[in-house]
């Protein structure tokens, strides 16, 4: 199959973002199918951004926040993100869109290997799910 998924990742710059940087410095490879964007906090990512990403062709959306949850630089960002995307996944299911297309992962900043591994896992999973358009060529 020619199709390669492309994914988008929103990383909290205080934790997952640092992990991504470390992955680069340490030359840890991860799938090139993902485009990572550093954001101030994953609590800023709205369900609208995520669904918009899908509408623009993203096959999956990855969100990286801080571990433990209460460790958010802005205190509440991780909880906000969790509640929002937990609900969004439930909602997507009702629309017949696989909730697995959204993945949340939590990090302390040195965990760059975990970042690389979860991204690779996610890309594999999305490959199995197929394109967001459900196989319909655009």
């Amino acid at each position: 199959m020619d199709w390669e998924p492309w994914l988008i990742g929103f990383l909290s710059k205080w934790t997952a973002g640092i992990a991504a940087e470390s992955a680069g410095v340490n030359r840890v490879r991860y799938s090139p199918n993902i485009v990572l964007i550093n954001v101030p906090c994953c609590g800023l990512i709205s369900p609208i951004h995520v669904v918009d990403a899908f509408l623009q062709g993203a096959d999956g959306v990855y969100i990286g926040g801080a571990l433990p949850p209460a460790n958010c630089h802005y205190k509440v960002g991780n909880f906000k993100a969790f509640k929002r995307f937990y609900l969004l996944k439930k909602l997507m299911k009702q629309f017949g869109i696989e909730p697995e297309r959204i993945r949340l992962e939590w990090f302390v900043s040195p965990q760059y290997r975990k970042l690389a591994k979860t991204i690779d896992d996610f890309v594999d999973e999305i490959k199995k799910l197929g394109p967001i358009t459900g196989g319909v060529e655009e």
Binding site: I48, V51, D52, F54, L55, L87, K90, L91, M92, Q94, F95, G96, I97, I132, T133, G134, V136, E138
Partner: peptide
């Protein structure tokens, strides 16, 4: 919250971004 679609889109489902996505999948 067992039926978010019912609660959120009782009057605006055709306008939902997710509807657009779901319909696109059906071509």
């Amino acid at each position: 919250l067992r039926d978010p679609m019912g609660y959120f889109y009782r009057y605006t489902l055709p306008k939902a971004m997710l509807t657009k996505l779901a319909l696109r999948r059906r071509g």
